[in-house]
Design a binder for these strands. Structure first.
Lengths: 230, 230
DNA sequence: TCGTCGAGTCGAACACCGTTCGTTATGGAG
DNA sequence: CTCCATAACGAACGGTGTTCGACTCGACGA
């Protein structure tokens, strides 16, 4: 006959320590970001998802910023990098920009987080830098021109990803409401106060996002072209 | 002969409640931002600077985000807006972009904060929007072209302001160290791994910031030009 | 085999955050 | 003078990133 467990026995031993790893942490954090957005990206939430405490993460990542950088670099790894071809530099540049932005958009908030980070310096970030510079150089830009173009495209791409992501996520209703109020307000002013804003207001929506991005990249490439031909 | 105050006397009465106002809060917050940067921009710090508690701020601003928006709009008020002139649209556009960025740079962190905000909709933001659109339209762009150009320039300007600000503030040593490590790392790799990164690495510094910005704006304007002539 | 060491895991606690709730104070209107 | 609405305020809530110190575990050397 089995006796019931005596009360001084504390029950099942705590399960064996779960070994963590940097990859595991990054994976988990990216999963959270993808599913729940930037608000879910706290050390506690990540740790919780890994069935541990936030302090455990610090054995593998220096701090939250480093976690974000690692995540960003992982995200960049999803992008295919073209081999620079002088005959196709325009398309390749465009392709690369589109790829970067697409990858960022897949993870709401990553662009915003990385915007404030240090120079991206992970392996994939370096590859991206090299690939873009190679394309720009293949197109005939000087070293400094390529460097500045690289900087501008990177900045704009991230900013655009931030914008698109904010149009898309949970605050969409809020943004629509703000847009509506703005329209109302602007229209309520004396005629002729903001005629251009009134005219273009309806053009801005999540549906025109890609068009905006493409326009910007095409325009910039046209400008680089003019530079090369001068 | 004056007697010392007896211990049951509690000293000076608590000063009369200080009336706050939205302007006062915004002024104080901007002062903090200018002097100490984004880390100082908490409701508690602002309230402290006003000799009150954070709860008092909520009678005047809805939340921290609204405070940031109000601050941004104030900052935009520092910029002179040109009256669109078709003969000078290029210079005017440049001038406006420069003005916006200059204003943002004066307040470390404002660009980053506003990057994540809703559509800027304060009075000055609206004036800016109208002014830029008017210039773009004066240059001969269609409505949608002007709208997209406006969007791109706004995004890039903010992103650039974030970049410049981060090169400038307290984390400068950190960034220099990161750049140094990167250079070291990249050079340590087999020759030919990242030749372009190695070549352009030394070009990036706080000293070349304005050049980068000017290049980007000039290039974009050249692209718009090509569009108009087509 | 045993003991030591270094690295990883973990809980508690620190210092901070934005915001809400309920109370108090104040000024203006009747 | 009284009442009411609004602003100011303290306490507290629920959260954040991070550190500190204790504990665990596996590898290595004696």
């Amino acid at each position: 006959m089995e006796l019931p467990d005596p009360p001084w026995r504390t029950g099942a031993r705590k399960p064996v320590r779960q070994p963590l790893s940097r990859d595991k942490i990054v994976d988990t954090a990216l999963g959270l970001l993808e599913k729940e957005g930037i608000e879910a990206l706290s050390m506690r939430r990540v740790a919780q998802a890994l069935n541990t405490g936030p302090a455990s993460l610090y054995a593998h990542v220096r701090n939250r910023d480093e976690l974000c950088e690692l995540m960003f670099d992982r995200v960049l790894g999803d992008v295919e990098l073209p081999e620079a071809d002088p005959a196709r530099w325009r398309d390749q540049l465009k392709e690369l920009c589109f790829g970067q932005v697409k990858a960022m958009i897949a993870y709401p908030g990553i662009a915003a987080v990385v915007m404030n980070a240090m120079i991206p310096a992970g392996p994939n970030a370096l590859r991206h830098g090299e690939a873009m510079l190679a394309i720009l150089r293949a197109g005939g830009l000087s070293e400094s021109q390529a460097a500045w173009a690289f900087d501008a495209l990177g900045l704009y791409g991230k900013a655009y990803a931030v914008e698109v992501t904010s149009w898309r996520d949970g605050s969409q209703e809020e943004m629509a409401e703000r847009a509506r109020q703005m329209t109302e307000y602007v229209r309520s002013l004396p005629a002729g106060t903001f005629p251009n804003l009134i005219a273009i207001g309806p053009l801005f929506s999540a549906q025109t996002a890609h068009e905006r991005f493409e326009f910007a990249i095409d325009t910039f490439i046209a400008g680089l072209d003019a530079l090369i031909k001068a």
